[in-house]
Structure formats: C-alpha cells, structure tokens
Design a protein around this nucleic acid. Structure first.
Length: 870
RNA sequence: GCCAGGAUGGCGGAAUCGGUAGACGCACCGCACUCAAAAUGCGGCGGGGAAACCCGUGCGGGUUCGAGUCCCGCUCCUGGUACCA
C-alpha cells in the first residue's frame, strides 16, 4: 500500500483492496480495556427485509462517521451490528412464497451482511447475532420468568382485531377500512387473554429521567412525556338508577363537575351490553362499534357518534338525572370505559352535545369576568366556578380540593394520579417470534417454564399459510407436562411482541457470547450506549420500551445506571421524486423509477417536463415522497456502490442534508460528490509532483501574507469540522467546510515553498477530517502523504491557536438596520475607533445626511448599527 | 382527532446565542482545452432596476435599533398514535 499514488481515482479497485487490508489486520475487533476511555456507538439494527435501502445506508453511515471520529480521538470504540430477525414480514413472505420464515430470514441476513460490508462500516463483526437465535431469546425468556416471579408480569383479557375468515389476529396495519387485508372480511373486536408487563409501575421514573436526558432531542423527550401523560385527577362514582353497580369515571377537571350533562360509555361496557338486550337499534349500534379497528387513529378520527342507552345516573352533587350514552370514541381498555361529559368546557363533549342536542351548561367563567360564547365552542381554560352550588366562586385548585375532600369523606371517590401510558401487552398470536415460556396447567394455572428447561425452542422449518396460529396446531410441541404437578399441560402458543427483542439487544452486544445470563460484567464497562442513532419513527415505542427494559435489567442487578442511551440522534427519511402515468381507462396509476425518466429544462434550469426514456412520451411529476416499493421511487444502494464506490455514496448521503432532516435523493448530487473525491485526488497528485512534502516553517509563513491566510483557513476548518462532528452532528456543514478548504488549497502556488508547505499541512488535515466519511480514499491518500499507520487510527488534527489570529476584522455597518457599508478595522480597535471608521464610510455618510445619530449598537467584530432620525 | 417536527433561489441546503440571507454542492449560462464530444479548468448565477437603490426566508399580525431565528393566529407537508419495524 505504499506504492506511488496512481494518476486517477478508481474506487472499484481501491475500496476492495483497502477493505481486505482492514480485514487482514482485524482492525475493528474491540475488547474491554479499563485503561482507555470507552465509547459505545450504536445504530438501530435492521429488520432483515431482504435488501438494504437508502434509509439503512443513511443510518449506518451516520453512526459509522461518529464511531470513526471517536476512534481517531483515541477512544476504545464499540460499534456492533446484528439483526432484528423476528417479525411479521417473514410470515407474510412464507404465506406468499411457501418459504419457511427461518430460511427466508437467514437468506436475507446473508445478503444484507454482504451489502453492509461493501459499504466499509467499522463493525466488530465478531459480536454479530440475530434475535431469532436461541442463544439470544433464551435470556429474554429467562427475564420473563424472573419478572413473572417478581409480579411485573400479569395476564388479562385485552381486545384485538379478529379476522373471522382467516381465524387470525390482525395487526392494525393489516386492517384496511375495517376489513382484513387478505380476506376482505369485516373484522371483529375480540377479547382474548394476553400477557402484560407493568410498565406503568415505572411511569414516574420514565417521566422523571426524561428531564435528565440532555443528550436527547427535545422533541423526542416531549413526545415521550406526552405519551406517558401523567395527570392528577379525581376518580368518583355515579349511582346508576335501578342498579346497585355504580359507574366509575376519572376526570382531570373536577371543577367542571356541575356542568356534567350526560355520561358516555364504551360499546363493550357492561351497562351498554345490558341496555342493548332491550333495544334493537342500540344493539345494532353496539354491534357496529364492535367492528371498528382497535387502532387509536381509527377511533379518534371517526365521526363521533352515539346513542342513548335509556339508563340514567344520578349527579352526585345536584341529584339530577343524567342520561347515559354509548359513544364510539370511548375506549373500553382505557380507564373504566366511561367518561363524564361537560359540553361547556370540553371540545369533544361540546361537538357531541351539539350534534345530538344535549344540554350545554356553563359552570366556569373567565377570571376577568369577560363573557364567553358557548354557541361558538367550549371554554376550556381554568376560571371561576359559577352555578356550582356551595362551590360557586372557587377557582380550579380550590374546587379540586373541596370536591376531592367531599368524595373522600363520603367514600365514593378519591384523588388519583393517572397515566395515559398503558401496560405493555406482549402477547402476539404469531408464529415467527420468541415463544412465551409459560405452561398452562388445568390444575396449577399458568406456570413459568423452569430456568433449567429454557430456552423454549421455536420449531423451525414450518410452512405458514396465514390461517390460525401454526404453533397452536403443532400438537406435539404444544402438549407437555406441568412443571409444578407433573400432570398433562399445554404450552403457551403465543409469541412475544418483537419489541421485546429490540428492547435489550444494545446490552447483549457487550457480551454476545454470554451463556449464563442476558449479559455479564462486560456490560458494566460498555454501557450506557454513548451515541444511539436511528429513525425518528422510533421516538416513542422502541425507545420507551428500551428505557423500561434497562430499568428492569438494573433492578435484576445486571447493569448499572438508569438509562440505556446517553445521546440520541434521530435521522430523517430518505425521499425522492415520483413519476407516474394516469391510465386513460381510469385504472391504477403506473409509477416509474427516477432512473427511467429524463427531464426537460428551461433556460434557467427549471424542470418543465419529464419523459419516460423507453418511449420518449411525457409522464406526470408526482412530488417528493418517502422511498417506497409502491411508488417505485426507491434507489438501490448496491447499484450506486457499484457505479460510484462506497465513499461517494457515503459522502453524498452525509452532504445532502443534516442528519435529522429528510434527505432528498438526487443522482446529479451523487455525481457531484464523486467529482469532489476525484478533484481531491488530483490535487494531492499535483502536490506530490510539485516536490517533497514537508510541514510549514513558522518563520517563513509569518512573513508571507498568502501563506498565513491560507494556514489560518486550515486551522479554522479543523476547528469547525471538529465542532460539527462532535457537538452539532451536522456532517453536511463539515463537508462543505472541507470542500471550501480544498478550493482554497487548489489556488495555492505549489512552486512557492511556504505555500506548498501550508498546502501539505492542509491536505494532511483534510484527509483525516474526511476519513470518517470516506475512509477508503482517505486511507490511500494518507499513505501517499506519508502518514503513519492506518488513517483509521490516525490522530485527529489539532488546531494551532496561533494560526487563528487576525490582524483586521471586517465590520458591517448598518444605518437604521439596513446594510450600508463595510469597513475593515484593526482587530484590537476600541469602540470609538470602530464607530469612527463606520461613520467615515461614504455609503454610511450618504444615509446619515440630514439625520442626527440617536444610538449606536456595536456587536464586537461583526456589526455596527447606527440608529438615526430626522 | 391528538402529540411532535418541518416550510429559505431553478434544486438539495447554509446562516451555531436575535446581528451581512443564500456558504457548500447540483442544475443552468458563458469561456478555455478539443476536429468534435466527454472529462477537466476559469467565470457568472434570488427578483426588479441604467444606477442609486428597492423587494425577498409558506401566509396574516406583533415584539425589537435589528427577525429566517422570538411571540400570537393560520395553511400545507412529514413522523408517531400502543399488533409494521
């Protein structure tokens, strides 16, 4: 690799050679080393869907840049990769092609691993695992058994989407307009027994720790905070007319109690079911509600509808009779399945009351006494109680306290902290997942599988047909004996939610070969993850479950610390232009890949028309959308790597947008990235041809204005790029600064010894600054420039603060906030001198004519604003 | 529906703590090299105007000496919404 640098840059030859050298040196294998500072950089592991897509490339390049940067800082970097291998797509593929899910999954893993390796990521592949391996899920089962004994696990009925034709439970995304996606049958809500983890027991800690997660984006913390949704309210009961069973409700607005004009219950509520027995139209409505998908989106965007049950409750303060309605927006599984309705002071209740002619009774007035218009909408702010019996005149918190005391004294209610967060249902009626280690015994009930009998292996090489649960039909697997009494018993045939596997894989990477528990002592060295990188779509579920698991692991004594991920970077989507044709017969649109499209531009470069290359006729431009199979606007990373090389793909992906924004695909943009690498290569070829490479002599540079300015830019760039990588994670601006420096170095006179030395210093810096992004080309250029060892472990360039000093600064001069001139002043000039220089500028003088100066605002070293008036 | 984001030239984006709007790249235009093309190099490039200048960061208001940035009210787009991962 010390051969002279070839004239031209050929990534197809260079990159495999560099990768082979890395592999031969086993460069990316890491072990625990207490003498060195550790850094754990993790990208969200992929579901092995078959091929890498651009979203993966982006995710893994961001993480690789950070890992490589930290490594060049001298840290001991753990950067692992594995596979989130259980899940629904494997079953769908099995149904469609008759391939067993295990086979399909492993074939995909093999292919995707090759694709990742070709991109040159710095993974320690010795730590690789897939979650479908018994060596992994064994310990997940062991944790579940432990949690069962601790009472963190329980079983209860919960509602699912049931497809009555395929006899299977459907995921929310498999329900389209209330029908099963394959069968087309109207789905039913069905209650079945399921296992739950008591995440609500940790709700307060999950909430409190959010405030300390300073390395997380504020948006993600806000979303989690709202998702947990802690509220303080009042739980109380209404007496039901003609029944001894009271109706319990929870409210965060006890102050509006006197404004309750009706009560709404879910269709599944016993009161609704009982009333439906006597009322055929009510029965029909309840039946209709029971065919709605369980998804919150569906429930909340439905037209709000309801019917009176004919039953009444008694208002606990006024003794008034209030009607009980069944409403399609009240969730059965949440709270008590019943809500008090205050149309005057709640938007949803207001809309419902308006459409059904229910009374709207104002009981809260604005504090300032201003009138409100209840015909226009609800008044939802806090205020002063009116028409509220003995509580009239109180404010929100006084009313809250008084009413809570009232109900507590009577024993019909109490103050309660409530969470929007619900316990985590982990049962899935699916085959391709981790078996739940429980045995159902007719005598002993649900008994956990003893630790020594774990893992409960998932039978593999099964054919799946999409009807019913394959495990339930596997008689030989299902029947077993009870670990407690020895009698005949049956295995649990549900598997875990795949979020279970992805909730602790980050810990397993620390000790992937541990065969005694989930993790061993090595986890204490590596955890927490210093930098976690993944899609914003995981902001709530995956990240909340992982935080929860970390606390469970901590409480089992397996890890230290409360949180798994110190820093979080959420990346945006990869999007691309779409093109389509609308068929004349009104049938389905046909979509075309951007590769198949040519565009016609006007004189200013604006796209005026797009045509299909094969027939030359126009197509419609459909706008920018997330890359997807259905819109055919996806770009295959592998063909890009083949065409341009991994470095170019990595460079474009990092350059086109900051990581947290969506990234728009552009093939000419990739070409631009490639051009830059070719230019950098050529420039270094030219430098080496110009003479021996040595570092600048400070004395020589000091007396040489151009060399001094250039050297200042070199060191300014080092400072900026370092800050962009380490603190801001704005790789796009780091690359822009590197390109700018390249442009400046290209103008250097290589025949001048001082300038040539500064150029050499600059290129040695650039090659290292860009190495995290384009490691292959950097490796080769580093060696050509005489760098020691591999660039992967080269020391990060240091800023020479002496090089940063400036003799003069440029000061922008404004008059009344408008830019009127620019003056150059000595860097050490005082305020008066700067003002005087600004006033002397001819453009400034012209705009000050006839005006008197009122105020001068000086932003040192940047701007001076002269405020003047006539 | 609810929660969280986003919107800046022809395009992707920059402007980091309220201080020069448009860095860097793409596209486009011109020039050089070439028989020619490609590649490469050099120059131009928000709109209007001869210029002085004026206008301009999704829309409507506001705060400030000064607003892309802060506040209030909208529009549209995106992510999540608990069984997609």
């Amino acid at each position: 690799m010390t051969a002279p640098l070839p004239e031209s840059y050929v990534p197809a030859e260079l990159e495999p050679a560099v990768q082979a050298a890395w592999q031969a040196a086993d460069l990316y294998r890491v072990t625990e080393d207490p003498t060195r500072e550790k850094y754990y950089c993790l990208a969200m592991f992929p579901y092995p869907s078959g091929r890498l897509h651009m979203g993966h490339v982006r995710n893994y390049t961001i993480a690789d840049v950070i890992a490589r940067y930290q490594r060049m800082q001298g840290r001991n970097v753990l950067h692992p990769m594995g596979w989130d291998a259980f899940g629904l797509p494997a079953e769908n593929a099995a149904i469609d092609n008759g391939v067993p899910p295990a086979e399909w999954t492993w074939a995909n893993i093999g292919h995707m691993r090759e694709q990742l390796q070709r991109l040159g990521f710095s993974y320690d592949w010795s730590r690789e695992f897939a979650t479908c391996q018994p060596g992994y899920y064994h310990w997940e089962q062991a944790l579940f058994v432990r949690l069962f004994r601790q009472g963190v696990v329980y079983r209860r009925d919960a509602v699912v989407n049931w497809d009555p034709v395929d006899h299977t439970v459907l995921a929310n995304e498999q329900v389209i307009d209330g029908r099963g996606w394959r069968s087309g049958a109207l789905i039913e809500r069905r209650e079945i027994p399921q296992w739950f983890l008591r995440i609500t027991q940790y709700a307060d800690e999950l909430l409190a720790e959010l405030d300390r997660l300073e390395g997380w984006p504020a948006a993600v913390r806000a979303m989690q905070r709202n998702w947990i949704g802690r509220s303080e309210g009042l739980e109380f009961s209404f007496a039901v007319e003609g029944s001894s069973e009271p109706l319990t409700v929870y409210t965060t607005r006890p102050d509006t109690l006197y404004g309750v004009t009706y009560v709404a219950v879910a269709a599944e509520h016993p009161l609704a079911r009982a009333a439906a027995l006597q009322d055929p139209s009510l029965a029909a409505f309840v039946e209709e509600c029971l065919h709605q998908s369980v998804s919150e989106t569906v429930v909340e965007t439905l037209e709000k509808r309801g019917l009176p049950t004919g039953r009444y409750v008694i208002h606990p303060m006024t003794g008034e009779r209030l009607p009980v309605w069944v409403a399609n927006f009240v969730l059965a599984g949440y709270g008590s399945g019943a809500v008090m309705s205050v149309p005057a002071h709640d938007e949803r209740d207001w809309a419902f009351a308006r459409s059904y002619g229910l009374p709207i009774k104002q009981v809260i007035a604005p504090v300032d006494g201003s009138p409100i218009d209840l015909t226009a909408g609800a008044f939802t702010e806090h205020g002063i109680l009116i028409d509220s019996g003995v509580h009239t005149g109180l404010d929100y918190s006084q009313a809250f306290s008084a009413l809570a005391a009232h109900f507590e004294a009577k024993g019909t209610g109490r103050r309660r902290v409530n969470y929007r967060l619900r316990d985590w249902g982990v049962s899935r009626q699916r085959y391709w997942g981790c078996p739940i280690p429980i045995i159902h015994c007719p005598v002993c009930g649900a008994v956990p599988v003893p630790e020594e009998d774990l893992p409960v292996l998932l039978p593999e090489n099964l054919t799946v047909d999409g009807a019913g649960s394959p495990l339930a039909r596997l008689e030989g697997w299902r029947s077993t004996s009870c670990p407690a009494c020895g009698g005949p018993a049956e295995r649990e045939t549900d598997t875990f939610d795949t979020f279970m596997e992805s909730s602790w894989y980050y810990a397993r990477f620390c000790s992937p070969d541990c065969d005694t528990d989930m993790v061993d002592a090595r986890a204490r060295y590596w955890l927490p993850v210093d930098q976690y990188v993944g899609g914003i779509e995981h902001a709530i579920l995956h990240l909340l479950y992982s935080r929860f698991f970390h606390k469970l692991l901590r409480d089992c004594g397996l890890v230290d610390g409360a949180e798994p991920f110190a820093q979080l970077l959420t990346q945006g989507m990869v999007v691309a232009e779409t093109y389509f044709r609308e068929p004349a017969d009104g049938g389905r649109r046909s979509w075309y890949n951007p590769d198949e499209i040519g565009v016609v531009r006007d004189a200013k470069g604006r796209v005026v028309q797009a045509t299909l290359n094969t027939d030359g006729r126009p197509v419609e431009i459909g706008g920018i959308e997330k890359m997807s199979k259905s819109k055919r606007n996806g770009v295959d990373p592998q063909s890009l790597v083949e065409a341009w090389g991994a470095d170019t793909v990595r460079l474009y992906t990092m350059f086109a947008a900051p990581p947290d924004q969506s990234l728009e695909w552009s093939s000419s943009g990739v070409e631009g990235g490639h051009r830059y690498l070719k230019r950098l290569w050529r420039q270094i070829v030219a430098l080496l041809a110009a003479g021996p490479v040595g570092l600048p002599d400070p004395a020589l540079v000091a007396g040489h204005a151009e060399a001094r300015d250039l050297r200042r830019q070199v060191h300014e760039t080092i400072a900026k790029v370092t800050d962009d990588y380490a603190r801001r994670h704005t790789f796009n601006t780091a690359i822009a600064a590197i390109m700018e420096l390249s442009n400046a170095l290209a103008r250097a006179d290589l025949d001048d010894p001082a300038a040539r030395a500064v150029a050499a210093e600059g290129y040695l810096a650039i090659v290292r600054l860009i190495a995290p992004v384009t490691p292959h080309v950097s490796e080769r250029l580093w060696q050509a420039l005489g760098g020691a060892g591999s660039v992967v472990d080269a020391p990060w360039p240091e800023v020479d603060s002496a090089a940063l000093t400036r003799a003069t600064v440029e000061l922008v001069v404004q008059v009344n906030g408008k830019r009127r001139g620019q003056v150059s002043v000595p860097a050490e000039a005082d305020r008066d001198a700067q003002e005087a220089a600004a006033m002397a500028d001819p453009g400034v003088r012209r705009h000050l004519e006839g005006l008197s100066v009122r105020k001068v605002i000086l932003v040192p070293g940047r701007l001076i604003n002269i405020v003047a008036a006539g």
